[in-house]
Design a binder for these strands. Structure first.
Lengths: 230, 230
DNA sequence: GAGGCAGGGATTGTATACAATGCATCCGAT
DNA sequence: ATCGGATGCATTGTATACAATCCCTGCCTC
């Protein structure tokens, strides 16, 4: 949605976005193997396209490609998790600041609709969809800041965050976020840049505090994966 | 050098790094066309590998792939240039701060050697090589900060900066940088984090001030490119 | 001449064939 | 029974063949 790249080949893009969305919505769990033939069959394309898509996803660190072994949904380590949120803490507050100075009523409408959709998804028990929309809220703010380069970085970090949440989230309640997003929306609507920056900072701190980053490894997808690999 | 990724296929990596280095050293000019067959012949690989490499480079925005038209060395717009240095201003000073708190004598030795190599290259009139080494200095600092995720972002931004410099640099003197790098090295050696952060901030400001970002388009590589495309 | 259109060569997009590698299973030896 | 190695299947890595697209050139019309 955010990146209207024309660069990568159209068909590979469809496949990559399909897989990415599935990862964002936690339909594809970390560690899951992505067999080229299977994916190709699903999307009706040859392995050439699938490979291109998988390489693209591996560049965004949503997928890990192990030479001669195949592609797996990435399993960020505890260290990865810390790094991702460290990077977000560096980028997003200042970006929210910038965004607040430029937010238009149209932007506010869009963000409002995002939040509403998120609530609707939560009410419908579609946790995965709610999670993806929650991430999109952050990406939308980066877009408002009108810095495509930084927005692309944030987009990647948000995507990885989804995997991190899948692995290290303490509980199942994503509700807590709604309040923070509402407050951010308010600050943006009033063009209160400093407050938006502070809110984003504390929002990210809150997010990290909801992760359990103590256990070094992570719950394996299957015994086979746990014992067979690495 | 910085990314010892095992992810992408070995052969494609060699090709991608070869092209990337050539871009960093300004042997490949912005806008230049990269024909798959030609590249494949040079490296002794099939188009499959070349395509993989080009897609990888396009993800790093060193190459632009225009559907059905081919791959070209990227030509960052004035806006891209501003965005890249805006992102660097956001990431690098804080990263230098972090790095300064962790810099070891071994790191200092490495950085010193970097600077020396850069000087040697300049003395030998190898401007391209000096430029690449100058960029590596920044990447090395990010590495010292021990944040791989942020370091990867900075690496990408430094690489793009090389293209931006090729297009928008006012003069030919890269000498000015040496002083700033020396000062940074000193701050890191003494573990003076705040000073390192300030030095990095002003260094980046200096860099931008040496760019001429007034002219909307850029000097074309060839008449054909200038008149034929877009 | 200027503009438009058709043909041909060059280049990219995609699928597929074949080689290389890894993984599981089975067998035999100890 | 457990370990070691060999065999076969599943999957990935690479090259190549063919189709689609683009771009250049030359011709034709006005």
């Amino acid at each position: 949605m955010i990146g209207a790249f024309k660069s990568t080949n159209q068909r590979a893009r469809v496949v990559a976005e399909g897989i990415a969305t599935a990862i964002h919505e936690h339909r594809l769990a970390p560690g899951m193997k992505l067999i080229e033939d299977e994916v190709g069959e699903i999307y009706g394309v040859s392995r050439t396209i699938v490979r291109s898509a998988l390489q693209s996803l591996s560049h965004e660190k949503l997928v890990e490609i192990e030479p001669n072994r195949g592609a797996f949904v990435a399993r960020p380590s505890v260290r990865d998790a810390r790094e991702v949120f460290e990077a977000r803490a560096l980028l997003e507050p200042r970006t929210a600041h910038s965004a607040a100075t430029r937010t238009t009523p149209a932007d506010i409408e869009l963000l409002k609709r995002h939040i509403e959709e998120e609530h609707a998804a939560l009410d419908a028990e579609e946790v995965g969809r709610a999670l993806r929309l929650s991430g999109n809220f952050h990406i939308e703010i980066a877009r408002i800041a009108n810095q495509a380069t930084i927005a692309a970085f944030i987009g990647q970090l948000v995507a990885r965050s989804s995997l991190i949440i899948a692995l290290y989230w303490r509980r199942r309640n994503a509700l807590c976020e709604s309040h923070a997003h509402h407050a951010l929306l308010d600050a943006l609507a009033r063009n209160e840049a400093d407050r938006a920056e502070e809110l984003m900072t504390s929002h990210l701190v809150d997010l990290v505090s909801l992760l359990d980053l103590t256990e070094p490894p992570v719950e394996p997808t299957s015994l086979k994966e746990a014992l067979g690999a690495e």
